[in-house]
Design a protein around this nucleic acid. Structure first.
Lengths: 222, 222
DNA sequence: CAGTATTTTACGGAAATCCATAATCCGTTT
DNA sequence: AAACGGATTATGGATTTCCGTAAAATACTG
């Protein structure tokens, strides 16, 4: 069983629940951070003191505050933690049910478990902790398990996402081309943009641009 | 202090936290529903037994399940509960921070308190319960208190929302006009649609239709 | 290096949307 | 019933987006 655990979760109501889970499985050495930055610093400090954490339980979405933050959300946090301490086990605990994002967490940050916040997620979290600590297998909530089976057809790159974001911000296609030209983005011709858009529409089966942006938002891509 | 309380909250991790709050303020007679429908039935049954609840603490967003539901979210729940039992006190407890939705809860469902789920929301919830039970005043989390000051410029009606929904589903303007003609919607001319759209864009300071739909989605209107 | 294939960019017409103005409808007033 | 005001609808042109094809650039091959 895990010896030393850190929780990254901003909602106090939820972190209480998580702490209860840890107590139930007899983990007493745990810390709790309400900010990603803070969690990251704690993890780094623990490494330097030669007392590293062996489990991170992290939420994905964090409320934005007045204060400056380096790490804005759980996705970034788990990514950076994975790079910092490759052997740590990571469980994402979130309401996020978009397969696109879940899959990329397993693929990119190589998380060890994903527990969907839900009606019985407390029990599930216990189960996930147990499975990961004993067998080292990955855990994913049954409701979203299909996310991993999706064929990784996500040939959507950074530029595509930039385009979608600009569109959803009300930038016209001409303006986007201008922006791309003045920044370093290549493929900065009108044709290139139109081509990408039509590819995206095709891919997401969108009737038009409004529809496309709407779908992208629903999927959590932007 | 409140004698009998019902909680509508689907996430088990959070309802644990709420229950803790109630215990802290010495409320022992409380029930908990994970479904809006269930909460509504309990409230109605309590009225019929002449032992009505005097406080409802409700989340706003509920996970959708396989099962059929009549009441899909907290907004509808508080609305129906308010109609059923006008004297019950209602606190919404949610991560929702869109002023549009918060304001409409106070205006339409006449909720008594809004507590934003956040870093210190447990304490806030206690405070809200205390204020509402003793003075009967309304409570709103400071971070979103500005929502109520907004001039009630919300002259957005059902038809506007229908239009926005159709647009986000990829329906073209011409098609929307056709749909409106075949259904009973009045204002079913191309001009009328264009006028409404331009009014909406003006209102939301949207550069174009894509932007408009994007904003509407962010605000939780559609 | 010539020739071919592939990708990228340019171009232009069609379609959709945007926007201002004109016409029509409808209820009220005199 | 004529005159008026406000709201709705129609109209047409400007702008933007859409989409197919042509030209140019680049990569690949013998």
């Amino acid at each position: 069983m895990f010896k030393k655990v850190i929780i990254a979760e901003d909602l106090d109501a939820i972190s209480l629940g998580i702490e209860q889970v840890l107590k139930d499985v007899n983990i007493v050495d745990f810390q709790h951070s309400k900010y990603c930055d803070d969690a990251f610093l704690k993890i780094r400090a623990a490494i330097h003191k030669n007392e590293p954490y062996d489990l991170l339980i992290s939420d994905l979405s964090f409320k934005t505050d007045h204060r400056e933050v380096k790490i804005a959300n759980g996705d970034e946090l788990v990514q950076k933690v994975r790079e910092l301490q490759p052997d740590i086990k990571i469980i994402a605990y979130s309401v996020e049910d978009k397969s696109y994002r879940i899959k990329s967490l397993f693929d990119n940050a190589e998380i060890d478990g994903f527990v969907l916040k839900g009606l019985t997620s407390i029990e599930e979290l216990k189960k996930a902790i147990h499975i990961i600590s004993t067998s080292g297998e990955k855990y994913i909530s049954p409701e979203v398990a299909s996310a991993l089976q999706e064929k990784n057809n996500y040939e959507i790159d950074d530029i595509d996402i930039k385009i979608l974001k600009h569109l959803s911000d009300g930038t016209s296609q001409d303006e986007i081309v201008e922006i791309f030209k003045t920044s370093d983005v290549k493929a900065n011709s009108k044709s290139a943009l139109e081509k990408r858009l039509s590819r995206l529409k095709d891919f997401f089966k969108a009737n038009n641009t409004v529809h496309l942006v709407s779908i992208a938002k629903d999927m959590g891509i932007i």
